[in-house]
Design a binder for these strands. Structure first.
Length: 287
DNA sequence: AAGAGGCCCTGATAGC
DNA sequence: TGCTATCAGGGCCTCT
């Protein structure tokens, strides 16, 4: 479901709720996520205080007082719900990302604090929870991943040097987390549109000027998305204003058959399957 | 070794 | 109505 901007919005909302709070109780209702939830998962969390909520790429990183680290990945369909406990001890939903009401099914993990709880819901179960026990394993966990777009390691030259001898198409490069971390299927299409590059263009035929555009537009698109609270594409029911709104800024994603938004461009947005992921682009202005 | 493709899983929607 | 097929915001593993 979420790409870097959406996970960042979750991180921000979570921070406001749980930093310096202590986990009272944990219920695991279904261990069968993408990675099996460890059998002693509760032990690692209960009575731990949340020191900080960080994020790398699409991973949420919760630093716990006992020095363990909880890693959360939302996969394609994971959502975290915040439920407040009222005077009658009934939990009522106050969701913060993309999920107006707590669904009845697929609530796999519940984390109780004083007066509220977090519920992890994930129909497809591509998400996962992981406990990391020390700093070394923590660094190792992310060592194969490429830099985030905001990291100084990410630069025009970094892009160019990685692409220059490669036959892989540029769309798949942007989705390759070992090259750059945080871009997903929506933002890859959007970045290439703004950069006027055709998604099927091979790495070795992307020139330096184009790399510069990718560099600039990657940061632009992700930062704008964060500014607008991320993109909400599946949940159209909620009107509470808690949804992200970047979907209104999509130039190509889910715009198949519609006119290209570039001024004076006569192109029509096309949809093409690249490595089994839908890719949207304007063949007229993306060369 | 790089790169293509399959697979994990459920739910919504389209088409017959 | 009730089937089947296709597609979803991700990432890991395998095969060539």
């Amino acid at each position: 479901m979420p790409e870097l901007p959406e996970v960042e919005i979750v991180r921000q909302s979570l921070s406001k709720k749980i930093i310096r709070k202590t986990i009272k109780k944990v219920i695991v209702r279904n261990r069968n996520l993408r990675v099996k939830v460890p059998i002693n998962f509760k032990k690692f969390l209960e009575n731990q205080k949340i020191l900080n909520v960080d994020r790398f790429s699409k991973y949420l990183i919760l630093f716990l007082s006992g020095r363990n680290i909880l890693l959360i990945h939302l996969g394609m369909s994971g959502t975290i719900h915040f439920l407040e406990q009222n005077k009658k001890n009934i939990f009522t939903n106050t969701s913060f990302y993309n999920s107006p009401e707590l669904p009845t099914n697929h609530n796999h993990i519940e984390i109780f604090f004083d007066k509220f709880k977090l519920v992890y819901n994930d129909p497809r179960r591509f998400g996962f929870f992981e406990i990391i026990k020390d700093k070394k394993s923590f660094e190792k966990r992310f060592e194969k991943l490429g830099p985030e777009p905001f990291n100084s390691k990410f630069s025009t030259n970094y892009i160019y040097n990685n692409l220059k001898n490669k036959k892989k198409n540029i769309k798949n490069f942007l989705l390759d987390q070992n090259f750059i971390s945080g871009i997903g299927n929506i933002y890859a299409s959007e970045i290439l549109y703004l950069s006027k590059i055709n998604p099927i263009k091979k790495g070795n035929s992307v020139n330096k000027t184009e790399c510069k555009k990718i560099f600039k537009n990657t940061k632009l698109v992700l930062l704008n998305a964060i500014k607008r609270g991320g993109s909400s594409i599946r949940d159209f029911k909620d009107l509470s204003g808690k949804k992200g709104s970047f979907q209104k800024n999509f130039k190509v994603y889910q715009r198949e058959g519609l006119k290209c938004k570039r001024i004076n461009c006569k192109g029509i947005i096309q949809k093409k399957n690249i490595l089994n992921r839908s890719t949207f682009f304007c063949a007229f202005c993306q060369k």
